[in-house]
Design a protein around this nucleic acid. Sequence first.
DNA 1: TTTAATTTTTGACTTATGTCAAAAACCCAA
DNA 2: TTGGGTTTTTGACATAAGTCAAAAATTAAA
Lengths: 187, 187
Amino acid sequence: MQQLLSHITAYHRLSTEAENALQNCFTEITLNKNEFLLTQGNVCRHLYFLEKGALRGFYNLDGKEITHWFGFEKDFVTSFHSFITGEVAVENIQLIESCTLWAIAKETLTELFNQHHDIERLVRIAYEKYYIRLEERYVNAQFKPAKERYEELIQQAPHILERVPLGFIASYLGISQETLSRIRSRF
Amino acid sequence: MQQLLSHITAYHRLSTEAENALQNCFTEITLNKNEFLLTQGNVCRHLYFLEKGALRGFYNLDGKEITHWFGFEKDFVTSFHSFITGEVAVENIQLIESCTLWAIAKETLTELFNQHHDIERLVRIAYEKYYIRLEERYVNAQFKPAKERYEELIQQAPHILERVPLGFIASYLGISQETLSRIRSRF
DNA sequence: TTTAATTTTTGACTTATGTCAAAAACCCAA
DNA sequence: TTGGGTTTTTGACATAAGTCAAAAATTAAA
């Protein structure tokens, strides 16, 4: 919980009341490797803060699993589309490692927004950061060759290779596992 | 201006005071085809609402122009990375058609946030929408073949072909102009 | 340990897309 | 209306990445 709070306040300094209110609204969850935080067809009603562990978001396309994001320590995770719109998710969220998470329900968060302008500001700022991070990923994904994308991923998340099966990484990079394997073998 | 207000309030209903405050903070701008709203190396200090016209964001990569987004009527446009972080932009924003825009400076917006929780909420909601829209574009860009991406673009923005040169569209789709031309010729 | 299951690599071949150059079509301005 | 510039298409060829199948390596389980 301390990690959550200090991470949050790095985004934006909160008043003590807001901080206390926030603390009471998160619930701790622990799940084991390979378990699902969300399965497709369900509405994702919670936002999670990932304190420890690793997980992935993936969906099924023509019988194949497409891993389109990873979550690691200090990430906020959810199926954003489902969480925001209230529609059922097309994606699944599955643990790659056993995880410790903090969950907050959407209605609880909405309630907090109404009571604390502070917290809504915090979330607005968080969205800004997540938006530009996604924008960068988008540009890289579309306009850089596979090899560069791989190298940048390794640089950003050096431990990912030890934590995540290669097949998931290949999928995340938008290439086949065989191609990724060949990229790696040429150094 | 009426268009801006009614677009905004479709996101979130504002109090009359907030609405009035907002109105006074936007300035009208008109620019001609091919002019630049922003050039790389400068900080983008404004957020714009595009009332009429079309424009594109592009950056230079190995001597080539990569068009990575388009703006049309009712879009909010800016170089989000630069606007949010205050760093210089790596991208350019150029008009494809003559445009009417409404501009608001970042400091003015920050001021509005402090005075009206309402407006910060509105922007938080706008970010949510823009985030999930970008997420969808990301998934399509990385995991769908060029032909499908083209077809979906035409469906979403049927008039784009009459308004935007094919080369820009090819770049936006992440394929060469020749490939796009061939996709089109096979219907 | 040894075996079984899973993950990763390698090989042979196919397909999609890129590149460069030139021709064709289109569009505007004199 | 015509001619020059731009945009789009076509052709020939090169390259990146995909697919399928099997071997090798790694990991987990008995």
